[in-house]
Amino acid sequence: MVPLYRDEAVVIRTTKLGEADRIVTMLTKQHGKVRAVAKGVRRTASKFGARLEPFMVADVQLYEGRSLDIITQAETLGAYGADIVADYPSYTAANAIVETAERLTDAEPQLQQYLLLVGALRSLARGDHDAALVLDAYLLRALSLAGWAPSFFDCSRCQKPGPHSHAVVQLGGVVCDECAPSGSPRLDADTLGLLSALLTGDWDLADESPEDVRRRASGVTAAYTQWHLERGLRSLAHLDRKQLTT
């Protein structure tokens, strides 16, 4: 019996292997994170074409190898790569998104993480929202799914009802006056409002937010992400925000 299997997958990362192959790291819908070999994919006549590039969603068929699985077929379900690379801020945001997905998942099936990842990449490709907002919403929700849900309203230590303004990422978001260590930094209501909106998916509020509020919210989100993902994300250092350059 040939151990063949089929699944839907988002391509997270590819690395060159040998002369013309690539190792493709994917988050699949049912098989968790999978690393597999795509043979001959770097040759310009490859049957895979661009179907196994990062940010692409594909229906893939694989067979189990001894160390790495081998991809035998791939059909595109979501061709998000071309639209994402056509906008540089979206490209840098997509990199941070897939790097986070790679760090938060393993070989266990994680359907919610899979759906969140596909949704974020689709949103970037369509240009539904500012790329930086899509990234921040993704980071907050992906961390929540991983068991690190922040709170930007009630006290994240004692659950005392909010609003509170002391924000301590190491404690999980905002904390009340009693729980706040002395010298805790404070955040303004607009920034906390945006963070809550990104966490809950209130895009009307998020899309209306001014740039300075977005930048403060991004700073908090990045700090919260780096705190939980022990080793820092490499992509975060290379983020490009459109508003800063135009």
Partner: peptide
Amino acid sequence: GLPVGGDLEYADEVT
């Protein structure tokens, strides 16, 4: 006209 997904070095001279 270059096939996508590949490396430039693998493109034939004519293409």
